[in-house]
Design a protein around this nucleic acid. Sequence first.
DNA 1: CTTGGCACTCCGGTCAGCCGAGTGCCAACC
DNA 2: GGTTGGCACTCGGCTGACCGGAGTGCCAAG
Lengths: 341, 341
Amino acid sequence: MQEERRLAVLRAIVEDYVATDEPVGSKALVERHGLGVSPATVRNDMAALEDEGYITQPHTSAGRVPTDKGYRLFVDKLASVKPMSTAEKRAIATILDGAVDLDDVVNRSVRLLSQLTRQVAVVQYPTLSRSTVRHVEVIALAPYRLLVVLILSTGRVEQRLVEISGDLSEDELTDLRSLVNRAAVGEIIADAVTGLRGLVPTDQPEGANATTAAVVETLVEAMSDHRSDERIAVGGAANLARYGDNFDSAVRPLLEALEEHVVLLKLLGEATTGEMLTVRIGHEGPYQELASTSVVATGYGPGDEALARLGIVGPTRMDYPGSMAAVRAVARYVSRILDEA
Amino acid sequence: MQEERRLAVLRAIVEDYVATDEPVGSKALVERHGLGVSPATVRNDMAALEDEGYITQPHTSAGRVPTDKGYRLFVDKLASVKPMSTAEKRAIATILDGAVDLDDVVNRSVRLLSQLTRQVAVVQYPTLSRSTVRHVEVIALAPYRLLVVLILSTGRVEQRLVEISGDLSEDELTDLRSLVNRAAVGEIIADAVTGLRGLVPTDQPEGANATTAAVVETLVEAMSDHRSDERIAVGGAANLARYGDNFDSAVRPLLEALEEHVVLLKLLGEATTGEMLTVRIGHEGPYQELASTSVVATGYGPGDEALARLGIVGPTRMDYPGSMAAVRAVARYVSRILDEA
DNA sequence: CTTGGCACTCCGGTCAGCCGAGTGCCAACC
DNA sequence: GGTTGGCACTCGGCTGACCGGAGTGCCAAG
């Protein structure tokens, strides 16, 4: 069957090109991979593959290089999922198990991912929106000054200072504390917000419970603060050094993107794509300047909820099977850890 | 006086080289800068400067380039402090005034510094060691589970979970809370640690106050956690793109260093150097691989205490007067903000 | 459909030659 | 003594010619 062999040729081209970074020719191909045909035959297949847009040649009389479309086919149909070695699995487990808090989990994940894949790793902090309120604490720091601490089911803790106009007795503080907790604990963020808002009558702005209003306002603000949704950790930028030549065309735009967390979030993919492992290759992405970079990402979170996403960013010419395996493995372990917490 | 003119020549060489990135020759020098002498004279001066090690030529019959020693002299003796424009000052003020908490201040500072200098900016979070304890809060999250919140004078908040073996009544909790607060509030970290340790008799490991012991242990750990001392924010890595050619020799090692926060801390300089603005040029630094990068850094903090350091990292061929002015200006504004908090 | 043969293309490296910027030195000048 | 113009010399970088090798496309035969 010639159709089958053609795909085998494409796979071989992708693998060779990824390994050597050089356009691959028909002769080298038959030597390295054990396809039992002659170079001439492969040439015919290559011509066909080129007609269909899967490969291209940098210049006449050079070897072939996969196009984005070629990588796409490779990822969708040809990539055998390369399982992690048990040693790697163990490494993932031990490194992540040592984490002490949420920030630590995220930081370790970034490191791990970038080391496993030798690419730039990106991990989004678990978003607030799906999590529930575990506890609210109100502390009198000083006269006229309260500290409000918001603890969420993901383990995230947000704290805010509140300046108030009057002093509070210990009893009043206790009342306030239980009031807001009754309204918010156990609720999902959105519901907690409406619950809290209900505590403050809108028609009575300046009253005895101006303090309550101020605290509620701060809590609502902390909950709906999209700044926290945008939090992201990046690691492994040093791996960009391996890009080699095309500095201006590939490294510079990526380096710029890494500082624009909004851009990164968009790259990681909308949360709506859920848990699925997604691969975005070159021009498929939303940014013209990043046409020569690919993204491998997936959602993660406790249970089957995808609270956030993590993944890696690298050149289109990357080891897709390896990257996909690493991303998926790390996402699984992180999710498990969030489950336990 | 010929000695004076020599220094003028050195200054001109540094300025020209920084501006153009090309070895500067005698002819171009007299044209650009209005020294009223002939190229031949300048050549004599250049020969002398080269003998003394301040400049060098990449190859025979090329222009001159400053050596590290040349930059050193320039920074120490020749650099006129370039004051910030009022527009820049206003920009600094408005950007930093918008910050909502300590993290935000640090993040904004990094951005600001990297934009002002077009270099990589590094800001160390205010260290714990010199700060005092403002408040400790103990919260019952769930049975057998406490949240301990530590609030420091720098505005930093650390929280830890504590698993305890028994349940606690509301009264016991209140007692515990006031106990630890009495021992720690107002004290400098080191003293707070000994104060807290004093609450737990060492010879009575398993007793009624195992809970107290656990809480104290957690607090002490949080206070002496050097992980927090190492926290650092980095920004403006995209500016590395402007390094141009020497990718391997300059960009790669720096990119690697930026991920090693320990290395960065060392680069910023020991806290003992205090508030002073320090400039470390090329080989003067502790790292062989970073021989072609310079660091401009200074301490900052509320009052006259240098709680932490901030600065920029760039190629030895950089605009020292501009960088120094920017670093100093940002440090001042950040310190002022910490004063207010 | 596969294969070997063959002419053709074009990249990349090497080498010679030239131009120009810059230097060092020297003799003359203030 | 310091300064200046003149002059021969050096050397890097650019240009253009040349060549080898890897690879291709096509064709005719198996």
